[in-house]
Simulated assay, not measured.
Amino acid sequence: MPNSDLLPALLSKLYENQLALEASILELSNWVEQRGSADVAENVRGALHTIDDNEEFIKLTLAVLMSPD
């Protein structure tokens, strides 16, 4: 893989990791809420909202970086 392809590939893998972490943290927040800590769960979901807000921009940017010139 040429060096010019490494950055988009790296960013793509980091994005996949970010989504996996988001999903696992959401599962944990659901577990916390079921055990009576609704405030903590809501705070966690609020923080995860940033990932959702940035998701479309990240996907579009990766598509541009990975497209042939």
Rank of each mutant, 00 (worst) to 15 (best):
W31R: 10
L11R: 01
A20L: 05
M66L: 12
S29M: 07
T61A: 04
E33P: 06
R35N: 05
D5R: 11
R45F: 07
D52S: 09
A63G: 06
L11D: 01
D52A: 06
V32H: 14
L14M: 02
L65F: 08
M66T: 15
W31E: 09
I51K: 01
W31A: 05
E22N: 14
S4F: 13
S37A: 15
A38H: 12
S12E: 00
L60G: 12
E16D: 12
I51H: 01
L65A: 07
L10P: 01
L21N: 00
E33C: 03
E16S: 14
G36K: 04
V40A: 14
V64H: 09
N43H: 12
L65G: 08
D53W: 00
G36H: 02
V32N: 10
N3Y: 14
L28E: 05
L6T: 10
I51E: 03
S29K: 07
H49T: 10
A38R: 11
E56Q: 05
Q18V: 04
N30P: 04
L21C: 08
E22Q: 13
S4G: 02
A9K: 13
V40T: 14
P2W: 11
A47V: 12
L48K: 08
T61C: 15
L21M: 13
E56V: 00
N17P: 00
L21G: 00
L19V: 00
A63H: 12
S29V: 07
L14C: 02
A20G: 06
L21R: 06
L6G: 04
P68F: 03
S67H: 15
L48Y: 02
H49P: 03
D53H: 00
P2S: 08
A38G: 14
L48F: 13
L65R: 05
E22S: 07
P2R: 10
L26M: 00
L28I: 09
T50N: 11
M66W: 07
E33G: 05
L21A: 11
G36M: 07
W31V: 01
E33L: 08
S12Q: 10
L14W: 03
D52R: 15
A23C: 04
R35A: 15
K13H: 04
I25Q: 04
G46R: 11
E42D: 11
Q34T: 10
L10A: 08
L60A: 09
S24P: 00
L7A: 13
A9W: 08
